[in-house]
């Protein structure tokens, strides 16, 4: 039972990180490799402010979300949109966006690296205090509870919004065929900017919550999660938010079990090996539909 709780907590951290990345990739076709850097820089911005003023958890989260949203929207406006405009075909655009993302990521990471001298940073000066609850031999902190509720809550809300709302439908239409969607009145540029702002905001939220949950973040944390998020999205099925939820908890579950079996250095090999095996049988991912094609 404790393993289940641990899986839920770890899975929720992964989920929060992967949601924004999945949203942008599966709708507007932007695989943003700067997502990890935005995640780190947002949390770092909140950390810098918290060093001078003792702030509460909601305020720190808000700062991180706003910084993440602004960074992501700026990246879309100044980098990705310009790349898309100048690219002759979708394939080359995808590749250039990917490379562009890596280039953009280097800037905030270099700033954080310089400012922290690679030391871990956190919210030690925050007014928030972690409480530990114990019941029937199970232990859980209030932070874990917040992470689980936020992660699952936002994932479900985002899934429902994409399925049921008019804007969600518009976004999904862009994901299927952006040209046809434009002809039907969907403003791709504005939608893309909004989507990237939401994705960045989610990265900021994930960053702040991760710092509260794990107490510290290193400059390389974003890159480590980026690879895992990529695997989660592909495992769940690109285009499916339910797939991301599944992918996050499947990876967290696999990791928790491998740790429980004392095979700690095999975590990546076994987890990614299992994902590889699943994809051999179902290349479109668990929840992915074969007929769906991004343009």
């Amino acid at each position: 039972m404790q393993e289940l709780l641990n899986t839920l907590t770890l899975g929720s951290i992964y989920l929060l990180f992967a949601l924004g990345m999945a949203l942008a990739w599966s709708t507007i076709g932007i695989l943003n490799f700067a997502h990890g850097a935005i995640f780190v820089f947002s949390a770092f911005s909140a950390h810098i402010i918290s060093e001078h003023v003792a702030l509460s958890m909601p305020v720190l989260i808000l700062i991180s979300v706003l910084v993440g949203a602004a960074m992501s929207a700026l990246t879309q406006w100044l980098a990705f949109e310009q790349i898309l405009k100048r690219s002759t075909n979708h394939r080359s655009a995808e590749m250039r966006v990917l490379i562009g993302g890596i280039g953009v990521a280097a800037i905030p990471i270099a700033i954080v690296d310089k400012a922290t001298a690679s030391a871990p940073f956190g919210f030690a000066n925050s007014t928030y205090k972690t409480e530990v609850y114990e019941s029937m031999g199970l232990r859980m902190t209030n932070t874990s509870l917040i992470v689980i509720i936020t992660g699952v809550g936002i994932a479900v809300a985002l899934t429902l919004w994409l399925r049921a709302s008019r804007r969600g439908l518009g976004l999904r239409a862009i994901g299927v065929d952006s040209e046809t969607a434009s002809l039907m009145g969907v403003n791709r540029t504005a939608m893309a900017l909004g989507t990237m702002a939401i994705a960045g905001g989610l990265a900021g939220l994930a960053g702040a919550l991760q710092v509260f949950q794990l107490q510290a973040m290193g400059v390389a944390t974003g890159d480590q999660l980026l690879i895992k998020a990529f695997a989660m999205i592909v495992l769940g099925g690109l285009g499916s938010m339910a797939g991301v939820i599944f992918g996050a908890f499947a990876l967290a579950g696999a990791e928790t079990l491998i740790f429980a079996a004392k095979l700690g250095t095999w975590v990546d090999a076994v987890s990614f090996g299992l994902i590889f095996l699943v994809l051999l049988v179902r290349p479109q991912g668990i929840f992915g539909r074969q007929e769906v094609r991004r343009t």
Binding site: E3, N6, Q224, L225, F259, G264
Partner: peptide
């Protein structure tokens, strides 16, 4: 003795 990887970020299981 518990081995972890450089990208291991959560130690809840080992700590408990």
């Amino acid at each position: 003795s518990y081995a972890v990887q450089s990208n291991t970020q959560d130690f809840t299981a080992q700590a408990q």
